Simulated scan of single mutants.
Amino acid sequence: MGTRNDYKKVNKYTGIYVKEDSKTRIKTYLARAKVNGTEIEQIVGYSNDQHKTNPSLAFQKRVELINAHKAGKSTKKGDNPTLDKFFQEFQEIRKETISENRWKSGRYFYDKYVTETLKNKKLKDVDSSDLQKIINQMIKEEKKGSYIVTVKELFSPLFKKAIEFGLVEKNITQFLKFPKYDNVRYFVLSDENSKALREEIMNIPDNHYRVMFMFLLRARRSNEVRSLEWTDIDFKNKKYTIRDLNNKVRKNQSYLLDDELIEHLNIIKEDKGLVFKSNRTGKKLTAIPKRLWKRIQESVGITM
């Protein structure tokens, strides 16, 4: 979270402090208050989170935080919470900063693989062997390695948050052992078939699907492309950003926006919102269009 001196007071918004990363320019908003004689301090948002938190939103969250403490709903060091109690609060904290699907999948995974005994164990007493047992059980069930790492993807940020709250001293997920795996789908194309693949993509009649596959052709991951918003695209400086919430390295990543992409993006350009969204729900697509991809594979001769 940084030291107290890292944060600067935000004028006009009582109890709100901000810290800006010198490299990414991402701002972290911190709320401070005193409730019933107890000082509270908590990060309430980031400038690049789902809500694009700003001083006004941070102040609203501070009010909610104060009300939660008054109602006795907050987790404090003296509470010595169980894993389950802290997990519920952790889920609530991150609900607005991650996608709905990711939030629900985290809940599903927790309910399926965490035993009642472990749920009722005091958070400070949970150690790496408890989580390693989950990993070992999944290996016995012959689950894919890419799914088994969900243990770390779920519990690492949970323990980071617990450290921030002063509930534990270390992140036990760094000691976990995972099976080696390769989740990359490989296929080799001749020069002729590579040209055919490009032609198939450039001839996709639907403008949005064509641009989507153009990004995929430039080695972007499916989720990275499906999560792109118009605010992530900088036409002036010819670059686009894959935000930390949507990539594997959990850091903002910027890439070149070439002239061909710019030309086709201008065809579908909007002021805000997702670049690619479901025609039915208007929300984020759950996957790339499978039937279209299957047709392209068959036409080009891709075997996976």
Rank of each mutant, 00 (worst) to 15 (best):
K34P: 06
E141N: 14
D258W: 02
T281I: 03
V35T: 05
L176F: 06
Y113F: 09
T231R: 15
T53M: 11
R280K: 13
Y29E: 04
R295W: 04
D259K: 13
R210K: 12
L176R: 06
V114F: 07
V225Q: 10
G37M: 02
K180Q: 14
K19G: 01
I148P: 00
L256N: 12
R32K: 15
K119L: 11
A68Y: 01
K73A: 01
L292Q: 03
I148A: 00
F59G: 01
I40F: 03
V168G: 11
K236M: 11
I16E: 04
S74F: 04
F159T: 13
Y17K: 08
V126R: 05
A33S: 15
I262M: 03
Q297Y: 00
Y181E: 05
S74D: 07
K34A: 06
E142P: 02
L285V: 01
K140W: 00
V225M: 09
R62P: 07
K77D: 02
S156P: 06
I262E: 05
K290A: 13
S128Q: 15
G45Q: 08
S190H: 08
G15E: 09
N36Q: 03
N247M: 07
R102Y: 15
K122M: 10
S99I: 03
F213H: 03
D130L: 04
E20V: 15
Y113M: 00
I267K: 13
